[in-house]
Design a protein around this nucleic acid. Sequence first.
DNA 1: TGTCGATATGCAATAATAAACATATCGTAA
DNA 2: TTACGATATGTTTATTATTGCATATCGACA
Lengths: 125, 125
Amino acid sequence: MEQSFENKLSGIQLNYKIWLSDKDGKGILGDGKWKILKLIEEKGSIKAACDELGWTYRRTWGSLKKIETFFGFPLLEKHRGGNDGGTTKLTQEGKKFVMAFDRFHASVDSVIVKGFDTLIKDLKK
Amino acid sequence: MEQSFENKLSGIQLNYKIWLSDKDGKGILGDGKWKILKLIEEKGSIKAACDELGWTYRRTWGSLKKIETFFGFPLLEKHRGGNDGGTTKLTQEGKKFVMAFDRFHASVDSVIVKGFDTLIKDLKK
DNA sequence: TGTCGATATGCAATAATAAACATATCGTAA
DNA sequence: TTACGATATGTTTATTATTGCATATCGACA
């Protein structure tokens, strides 16, 4: 058996998750919600965003409830009724939050990827 | 209702996890295993490390099995029997892996924390 | 004023994960 | 050669997370 990482390294992939929580680790708002919030704004409805990501409406709705419960004010402006059934878009606060998270990710993503490259190189030595 | 993040920000905490997987997202080896590997080396046994972290031996053993199955060679040198029941320490490869992950974390941790600080500041604006 | 499709929500079923229980194996030192 | 405590592993029970099903509500518009 080859006692070396070498031939396994190409099969390794990097994963990471970053999220915010309250002090009990609850009320989580992370990558998933960030993604869906962006997509809701883009598509104009929760349902359309769910379909796009293949998520169940039920689960998504529960997630969105959590984040708004945590902050105590809505990040989404939801409208029911109408010929199109209803629409949803981000509130001012929602936009601010999404943009802040955008910046956050932009600042850490490349560093993590770079660190991973170094890790792989270290294992080759 | 206050439409501002301001008064909630102090209750928010940062969380993140970084891990490596095979192409199917399986064979995971991340922060948990990194931590326990270091502790096993320090304590000299799997059991002692488990007790320290409050993890079940069964679960830990399963985790360690996974990582070694993935690489195809042991990261741990395990000994059974003896008056002390047995001991475990890292192999050369185990040490290399742990050290590489040490470096990896050292290079990304501060950036992530700094990014979080900026995120919070952004939400205050 | 009836139709439509999305929002809104409860609840049962199911899957995924972790914990708990049980037991066998090993080898050294007394 | 027996006792000890850690390694090693199967099985089962709990916990939690996710899915799926069902159903009510809403309001612009035809």
